[in-house]
Design a protein around this nucleic acid. Structure first.
Length: 511
RNA sequence: GGGCCAUUAGCUCAGUCGGCAGAGCACUUGACUUUUAAUCAAGUUGUCCCGCGUUCGAAUCGCGGAUGGCUCACCA
């Protein structure tokens, strides 16, 4: 009975399964057919471009453009994708694009001979070519190569998107990112910038005496953050494993082991909602420094981000989505309690009990589901009323202990912890603690997390006994910091969506 | 999951009141030996996202569905 309605999935028009192979060619439009015919002709004449294994490239187009005076009159060879053709009978101008630039080539029939020229005229936009010739400047002043030899290095069998408007369909841009990179120059430069930013971050950390380490992506206990993990399975061991949500607990084991200053910059996986700021896999850097605390991490955060901005963009005053943001240190500092007082008008210093906190929430029109502690109430108010105002870089200090299970309590105030989050453009960019190193306290905090988990909170931490044993061997006082690398790159590249700074963002499969 | 919007040629997009499916780029043929969004002449290109309905007639109107975008909710 229940299956009857599903029959339409099998009968809805896929009757062509048995005749698909041979009808491919007929189904193609003219552009596809013509290009395949050109390839077939080349192959029949023993000139199959796909048999070529190597081309001797002496220069990149960027080098030639940047130092024309030294290349003027010299012979060079370049290679790249043919992106435009301006043919005028017995001579042609074309643009060849390589990674960092483009260069015009000038092909004349009496330079390469009538046979090679007529073959060249069959090249299509999108073909990969190698070109050898002499550098010169045209009458209109454009640096070019007068071609002595041109080689087809790969035939493009499909047309590129339109040259003037580029590729706009966002879905296609993400699914076929190579097309996006070919036709939208600003996309290519964004990803080149991403690479430079990450390199600058690593250089900064290395210069400060940190070592980069790699810890497991496959975890038996996913810890260090409040997030739902992805689950996978190892066949030989026959156990489920989790993809890591944070490297925190491994990195602190390394501090116990005496590595003192470590960082890891890599991919995290969180099985949660997707948005303009969230992708299921994303890059984060975590840093741990022995004998330091969260105040030291504040200084490190400011220095790191402002130094990278200065190096990559040449300034610490950036523009993000039309808003000026000043990354010049020092950044403003405010406790969460102060922020809530300022933006919500509620003074949590004057609130003693969870009941009073609940009343304060209700008076601000907030919904309360289940039991809410004083700290959770303050955090909720902070997120609701304060976060949106934190446009310029701002450290928010002293988070409630209930939502900070891995953080040292503030001396003299057991309700709060030595923790900050840093916000830029109302987004959380970083999160840092004075790390909790008391194994007995840690064990109790885990137990409280386990209780939350058992009462339905899928994001609460699991008990990690092995980590507690590591702490029992002695973790020095340590400062720890996590920085959302993708969000930082969004800021520095002025990108609206996280999908614009991930080459292949997670997509729902088609069909 | 809710709301709003979109889906038309390989790409970017028009398509009026329901009346033969359009443009630019790309492509094909021809002309052109310093062009550059080359130019000029001629030509080709369609599951109008899918299904059902209303109608003499649907790209256009109605209902249902798919995909995507934005947004709200969710989400350290």
């Amino acid at each position: 009975m229940t299956n009857v309605d599903n029959t339409n999935e099998n009968t809805s028009g896929h009757a062509s399964d048995n005749m698909e192979e041979n009808s491919d060619f007929q189904d193609m439009n003219e552009i596809l057919r013509v290009r395949r015919q050109k390839l077939a002709e080349l192959q029949e004449n023993g000139k199959d471009p796909f048999e070529i294994v190597k081309y001797d490239v002496t220069h990149k187009t960027r080098d030639i453009i940047d130092s024309f005076d030294t290349f003027d009159g010299q012979e060079v060879s370049i290679a790249g994708r043919l992106m435009s053709k301006r043919g005028m009978g017995k001579s042609s101008f074309c643009d060849v694009h390589d990674r960092d630039g483009k260069l015009q080539i000038y092909v004349q029939v009496n330079m390469i001979g009538p046979e090679a020229y007529s073959e060249f005229k069959k090249y299509d936009i999108g073909d990969m070519v190698g070109v050898k010739g002499e550098v010169f400047r045209t009458q209109k002043g454009e640096i070019s190569i007068k071609v002595k030899e041109v080689v087809l290095l790969a035939k493009s069998l499909r047309p590129l998107p339109e040259k003037w408007h580029g590729l706009k369909d966002t879905d296609m841009r993400y699914r076929q990112r190579y097309l996006d990179l070919i036709v939208n120059p600003e996309v290519k430069s964004t990803f080149i910038l991403r690479s430079k930013i990450i390199k600058a971050i690593r250089t900064f950390m290395d210069n400060r005496g940190f070592i980069e380490v790699d810890t497991p992506l496959l975890n038996t206990i996913p810890g260090g953050a409040a997030a739902r993990p992805f689950i996978t399975h190892h066949n030989t061991l026959d156990i489920d494993l989790y993809l890591r949500i944070s490297p925190e607990l491994y990195l602190k084991r390394l501090i116990v082991g005496g590595l003192e200053k470590v960082y890891e910059l890599g991919r995290m996986f969180r099985n949660e909602g997707m948005s303009v700021k969230h992708n299921p896999e994303f890059s984060m850097m975590e840093i741990y420094e022995a004998y330091n605390d969260y105040k030291g991490m504040m200084e490190l955060t400011e220095q790191l981000i402002s130094t990278v901005a200065q190096e990559i963009l040449g300034t610490t005053k950036i523009s993000y989505q039309g808003t000026e943001i000043d990354l010049t240190p020092p950044w403003s500092r405010m406790t969460m309690c102060e922020a809530v007082k300022k933006y919500a008008g509620v003074d949590f210093d004057a609130i003693a009990t969870a009941d009073e906190a609940k009343k304060a929430l209700i008076s601000k029109g907030l919904d309360i589901k289940g039991a809410v502690s004083k700290g959770e109430a303050m955090n909720l108010m902070f997120e609701t009323f304060a976060e949106e105002h934190l446009i310029q870089p701002t450290f928010i200090l002293d988070y409630p202990v209930e939502i900070s299970p891995l953080t040292k309590k503030k001396p003299g105030n057991p309700e709060l912890t030595e923790r900050f989050e840093v916000f830029i453009y109302a987004r959380e960019i970083g999160n840092a603690y004075s790390e909790l190193n008391d194994p007995i306290d840690q064990k109790e905090r885990f137990e409280r997390q386990v209780e939350k988990r058992e009462s339905g909170d899928e994001e609460a931490n699991m008990m990690d006994d092995d980590y507690v044993i590591a702490l029992e061997h002695g973790l020095p006082p340590t400062g720890g910091l996590g920085i959302g690398i993708d969000r930082l790159i969004m800021l520095l590249t002025d990108s609206y969506s996280i999908r614009d700074i991930l080459l292949f963002p997670t997509m729902k499969p088609r069909d």
